[in-house]
């Protein structure tokens, strides 16, 4: 399997790149601090007296990711183009796809690691009561898939520009749309001014709608398919953008 060997070589390099810069550690610390702060102080997890992580913990994830995932993904292609290493990478005997998937996987694994490091939450809630650990597990799976969707969008944004800042802003804008499309206040406005069908249509694009199922402990194939198709489509768009740059 030459293909996967090439992908894995790229993935290893990218993962290494995260951990040699302080970015990785800063990201993980901020993510964990945010999780702790919002769960315990904003959502008042301890006062709620409920042995569940869904509302106090996972509800915040779409919002955390809005800023944190574009920060992880912004350098993926923008930096390669700025430094010129893209010329090395794409003249190696690998396909552009292998490079795109390899880079994406590295960042996705990194986000997975950050997510796994929130395990003290799970231990706490298990110590205090007896939660439904199945629901917690599906919610983790959903959260990771959602992070993957955000990340793939960040890849597109990163391929568009040489500037990491511009790439970050574009990614946040698109991800914000994906959240707001399913945000109750926005849905209400849509339902008032447009037909229910349109509201349904817009809502179906939202990560919120599709994340909800996971939070209830349901692994719905449509939700999984939604996140996977966002990832697939975004990575495909990335490859098209990279090709157009070079076509001149």
């Amino acid at each position: 399997m030459n293909t996967w060997r090439n992908v894995w070589t790229i993935t290893k390099r990218e993962l290494g790149a995260y951990f040699t810069s302080p970015l990785a550690y800063i990201f993980i610390v901020i993510f964990l601090l945010l999780c702790g702060f919002f769960t315990f102080f904003v959502a008042r997890f301890l006062d709620a007296g409920e042995a569940s992580l869904v509302r106090p913990f996972f509800d915040w994830h779409p919002w955390f990711y809005l800023f944190l995932v574009p920060a992880v993904g912004m350098r993926l292609w923008a930096e390669e183009r700025r430094v010129g290493t893209i010329e090395l990478l794409l003249t190696m005997p690998i396909t552009a796809w292998q490079a795109i998937v390899g880079k994406f996987l590295a960042s996705w694994l990194f986000l997975g690691l950050a997510l796994v490091l929130t395990f003290p939450m799970v231990m706490t809630v298990n110590y205090l009561g007896s939660p439904d650990n199945g629901v917690i597990l599906t919610a983790y799976v959903g959260s990771w898939l959602m992070a993957g969707a955000y990340l793939a969008i960040s890849c597109v944004a990163s391929a568009l520009t040489r500037s990491q800042v511009v790439s970050f802003i574009i990614a946040v804008m698109i991800c914000l749309f994906l959240i707001l499309a399913g945000y109750p206040p926005v849905i209400n406005v849509l339902e008032q001014f447009a037909s229910g069908h349109l509201a349904d249509f817009v809502t179906s694009f939202s990560v919120m709608t599709h994340f909800e199922g996971f939070q209830k402990g349901v692994l719905d194939s449509r939700d999984i398919l939604f996140f996977l198709s966002v990832i697939g489509f975004s990575l495909f768009t990335t490859s098209v953008i990279l090709r157009t740059h070079r076509a001149g």
Partner: peptide, 26 residues
């Protein structure tokens, strides 16, 4: 191929970079 301005991954060590290049060459 040695591109103009000799780009290289700045976050790697020379050893790491050469190992990466060797691996991706199979």
């Amino acid at each position: 191929y040695l591109p103009e301005n000799a780009p290289a991954y700045t976050d790697m060590t020379v050893y790491g970079f050469l190992n990466f290049a060797a691996e991706i060459r199979g």
